[in-house]
Each structure stands twice: as C-alpha cells, then as structure tokens.
Amino acid sequence: LELTLRVGDKTWHFKDVDEEFVRHLEELLKRGAHEREIEEIIREWLR
C-alpha cells in the first residue's frame, strides 16, 4: 500500500505501508486525534 497523509501543514508519503498501521491511523482519525498524537505515531512507525 502507498499512503499520503496530510496533517496540519505537514505531508507524508509512505510506500509499502503495513495495513495494520493504516487501520491504526484510521482509528486515531475517527476519534479525533490531535495533530501531535498523529505525528508521534508516525515517528514511532518510522523507527
């Protein structure tokens, strides 16, 4: 999967994204996660 995600003024483009990561992001967005929380999840995933 490829994913382009825009949060606030930042845009990330990922290739070979894990479906579990996408589901986790979807859940965060559904519950109205704040920009900082989403950025933290992305940084963790990139490690």
Rank of each mutant, 00 (worst) to 15 (best):
E26L: 14
L5G: 00
L29I: 15
R6Y: 03
E27L: 09
I41A: 12
T11E: 13
T4G: 02
R23W: 07
E2L: 04
L46N: 06
K15V: 10
H13G: 02
L5P: 00
K30F: 11
D18F: 03
I42H: 06
D9A: 04
I38V: 12
E35G: 05
G32F: 05
I42Y: 07
W45A: 06
E26G: 11
F14Q: 00
L1N: 15
R31A: 14
V17F: 02
A33E: 06
L5E: 00
K15D: 06
E20I: 12
V22C: 02
V7N: 02
H34G: 13
G8T: 00
I42A: 02
K15Y: 12
R23Y: 08
R31L: 13
W45V: 05
R31S: 12
G8Q: 01
R23E: 05
R43H: 15
D16L: 14
R43T: 13
F14V: 03
E26M: 15
D18T: 11
I38G: 01
R36S: 15
R6V: 15
T11R: 02
E27I: 08
E19M: 11
E2W: 12
L29K: 04
L3F: 06
E27V: 09
E19K: 14
K10Q: 08
D9V: 02
L5F: 12
R43A: 11
K30E: 08
H13M: 04
D16F: 13
E27T: 12
D9P: 02
E19R: 14
K15G: 04
E40P: 03
T11C: 12
E35Y: 10
D16E: 11
I41W: 14
D16W: 14
L25A: 03
L25H: 00
L5H: 01
L3N: 03
V22K: 03
E19D: 06
L46Q: 11
H13N: 04
K10A: 05
R36D: 14
K10E: 06
E2Y: 07
F14T: 00
V17Y: 04
I42R: 00
I41V: 14
L28Y: 06
D18S: 13
W45M: 08
E27H: 11
T4F: 06
L28E: 06
V7S: 02
R47W: 07
V22A: 03
T4I: 15
L25C: 08
I41S: 08
K30I: 09
G8I: 01
R47C: 07
A33S: 08
R23D: 05
K10Y: 09
E39V: 08
L1Q: 10
V22W: 03
E44N: 11
L46D: 07
D9R: 03
E37W: 07
K10L: 07
K30R: 14
H34N: 15
G32I: 04
F21Y: 02
E27D: 12
L3H: 08
T4W: 08
G8E: 01
R36N: 14
V17H: 07
R23G: 07
R47P: 09
H34K: 14
K30T: 11
L46A: 07
E39R: 03
E35V: 14
R6I: 15
K10G: 02
E19W: 15
T4S: 07
W12K: 00
L28F: 05
H34V: 08
R36Q: 13
L3A: 05
E20S: 13
F21Q: 04
L25Y: 02
E37V: 09
L25P: 00
L5Q: 01
E26Q: 14
F21W: 07
L25F: 02
H34L: 09
E19V: 15
E37H: 08
E44I: 08
E26V: 12
H24F: 12
R47F: 11
G32T: 04
D9H: 04
I41C: 04
L29Y: 05
E20F: 08
V17N: 08
L5M: 06
T4D: 07
E20W: 14
E40V: 09
V17L: 03
K15A: 08
A33I: 12
R36A: 14
I42C: 02
E20P: 15
W12L: 03
E37S: 05
E2N: 15
E44T: 06
R47Q: 12
K30C: 03
D16I: 10
G32N: 07
E26R: 12
L46V: 10
E44Q: 09
R47A: 14
F14I: 05
H13I: 10
D16N: 14
T4N: 08
L25T: 02
D9S: 05
E40N: 13
L28C: 04
H34P: 14
K30A: 12
T4P: 02
H24A: 10
H24P: 01
E20L: 13
E44D: 12
D18E: 08
V7E: 01
V22H: 03
L5S: 00
V22Y: 07
F21L: 04
E26N: 10
V22I: 06
K15S: 11
R43F: 13
I38F: 09
L46Y: 08
E35T: 13
E26A: 10
A33C: 10
R43S: 10
V22D: 01
L28S: 06
H24V: 11
W12D: 00
D9M: 03
L3P: 02
T11W: 07
H24D: 08
L29D: 02
F14E: 00
R23S: 07
E35N: 08
E44Y: 05
K15T: 10
H34W: 06
R47D: 11
E40Q: 11
R47N: 13
D16C: 09
K15H: 15
R43G: 10
E35M: 07
K15N: 09
E27M: 12
E37C: 10
V7D: 01
R23K: 13
W12I: 03
D18G: 05
H34Q: 14
K15M: 09
L5D: 00
E27W: 08
D16Y: 13
I42K: 00
W45K: 11
F21D: 03
A33K: 08
T4Q: 12
E26W: 09
E35A: 09
T4C: 15
F14C: 02
W45Y: 15
T11N: 04
T4M: 11
L25S: 01
I38C: 05
F14K: 00
K30H: 10
L3V: 14
E44W: 06
T4V: 15
H13A: 03
E20N: 13
E27P: 02
D16T: 13
I42V: 06
L28K: 10
R43L: 15
E35S: 09
F21I: 04
F21A: 04
L29P: 01
E35L: 11
E40R: 12
R31P: 02
F14W: 01
D9N: 08
E40F: 09
E44M: 07
G32A: 06
A33T: 12
L3I: 15
A33W: 12
I42S: 01
H24N: 11
F21V: 03
L25N: 00
K30W: 09
T11S: 05
E37Y: 11
L25M: 09
R6T: 15
V22M: 05
L25W: 02
I41R: 08
E19A: 15
K15Q: 10
D16V: 10
V7A: 02
R47Y: 08
E2H: 13
R6E: 11
D18Y: 03
E40Y: 09
K10H: 13
T11F: 07
L28I: 07
L1R: 08
R47M: 11
V22Q: 02
L5N: 00
E20R: 09
G32Q: 05
E35H: 11
I38Q: 02
R23L: 09
V22T: 03
T11Y: 08
W45L: 07
K30D: 08
D16A: 15
W45P: 01
V17R: 06
L1E: 14
V7R: 00
E27N: 13
G32L: 04
V17W: 03
I38H: 01
W45N: 06
G32C: 05
F14R: 00
F14N: 00
A33R: 07
H13Y: 15
V7W: 05
L46F: 11
W12M: 03
R36T: 13
E19P: 12
R31D: 10
L29A: 09
E39A: 06
D18P: 11
I41H: 10
D9Y: 01
L1G: 15
I41Y: 15
F21C: 02
L1D: 14
L3D: 01
E27G: 11
G8M: 02
E40W: 08
G8C: 03
K30Q: 13
E37R: 06
V17K: 10
L46I: 13
I42G: 00
W12Y: 15
H24Q: 11
R31I: 09
K15F: 10
H13E: 04
V22F: 05
E27A: 12
W12V: 02
W12Q: 00
R6D: 06
D9K: 05
K10W: 06
E2R: 06
F21T: 04
E39M: 09
W12S: 00
L28W: 05
R6F: 03
T11V: 14
T11A: 04
L46W: 06
E39Y: 07
E26Y: 12
I38L: 09
K30P: 01
H13L: 05
I38R: 02
I42D: 00
A33M: 11
R36H: 14
E39L: 07
I38N: 01
I38Y: 04
H24M: 13
K15C: 07
E44S: 08
F14P: 00
V7K: 01
V22G: 02
E37D: 13
L1A: 08
H24K: 13
E37L: 08
K10D: 04
G8K: 01
R36P: 06
E37M: 09
E37T: 07
F14L: 15
L29F: 07
W12P: 00
E26P: 01
I42T: 01
D18N: 09
R43C: 07
I41D: 04
I38T: 02
G32R: 03
E20A: 14
E2F: 06
L25K: 00
H13T: 09
T4E: 14
E37K: 07
W12H: 04
D9G: 07
F21H: 03
E26H: 13
L28H: 09
K30S: 10
